[in-house]
Amino acid sequence: DRHTIHIGDITIHLEGFSEEELKLAEELIKRGIHLEEVKRILEELYR
């Protein structure tokens, strides 16, 4: 499954994450956390 996060003019595609995980990812990215770090956090929390 493919999910999309929109932040301003930026569109990020993250596959294989639930709606809850994507909301967390979006919040972290909006707070300035680097995408690679966001992915690592999600994997630690949900895998």
Rank of each mutant, 00 (worst) to 15 (best):
E15W: 15
G32N: 03
L22F: 10
H6Q: 14
I33C: 06
D1N: 08
E27A: 10
R47N: 15
T11Y: 10
K23M: 13
I7D: 08
R47D: 13
R40E: 05
L42E: 00
E15R: 03
H6A: 12
Y46A: 10
Y46P: 01
E21I: 14
V38K: 00
S18C: 09
E27F: 09
E37C: 02
I33W: 10
I10C: 07
A25Q: 01
I7F: 10
R31K: 11
H3A: 05
G8D: 12
H13E: 10
H3L: 14
L14T: 04
E15Q: 10
T4A: 05
D1R: 01
I7P: 05
E27Q: 09
G8W: 09
D9F: 10
H3Y: 09
E44I: 07
E43H: 05
R47M: 15
T4S: 09
T11C: 05
L45C: 07
I33A: 06
S18H: 08
R2N: 15
R40M: 09
L24T: 14
F17K: 02
L14H: 03
I7T: 08
I5H: 04
T4R: 00
E19F: 13
T11H: 11
I5V: 04
I10T: 13
H34T: 15
E43Q: 03
G16H: 09
D1I: 04
I10N: 08
T4L: 06
I7W: 14
G32W: 14
E44N: 02
R40A: 12
I12M: 09
I41R: 03
E36C: 05
I41F: 09
H3F: 14
G8Q: 06
H34M: 08
E44M: 02
A25R: 01
H3T: 09
E21F: 15
E44F: 08
E26R: 11
L28V: 02
L35N: 03
L28C: 02
T11Q: 12
E37R: 04
E27K: 09
T11A: 10
D9H: 14
K39E: 06
L42I: 15
R47I: 15
E15V: 13
R31T: 13
E44H: 02
I41V: 09
R31W: 15
L24W: 09
I10H: 11
R2G: 14
E26G: 08
V38S: 00
H3D: 13
E26S: 10
E37D: 14
R31L: 15
E19P: 07
R47G: 15
R40Q: 09
F17S: 04
H3S: 04
H34R: 10
L24R: 03
E26C: 06
I10K: 08
E27V: 10
S18A: 09
K23R: 14
T11I: 13
R31E: 10
I7C: 02
E37Y: 05
H13W: 11
E43N: 04
L45Y: 08
E26M: 11
I41D: 01
L45E: 08
K30Q: 10
H3M: 04
K39P: 01
I5S: 05
H6M: 13
I29K: 01
E27H: 06
E15M: 12
E43T: 03
I10S: 08
E26N: 07
G16I: 15
D9L: 13
A25Y: 04
R47S: 15
G32A: 07
L24F: 11
I5D: 06
E15Y: 15
E26H: 07
I12Y: 12
K30D: 05
A25V: 13
L28K: 00
H34W: 08
K30G: 11
I33P: 02
L28I: 02
A25H: 01
E19G: 07
R40Y: 05
L28A: 02
L22R: 09
H3K: 01
K30H: 09
S18L: 13
K39A: 09
K23Y: 07
K23E: 09
G8A: 11
E37N: 02
I5A: 01
G32P: 04
R40N: 05
E36N: 07
K39I: 15
E21L: 14
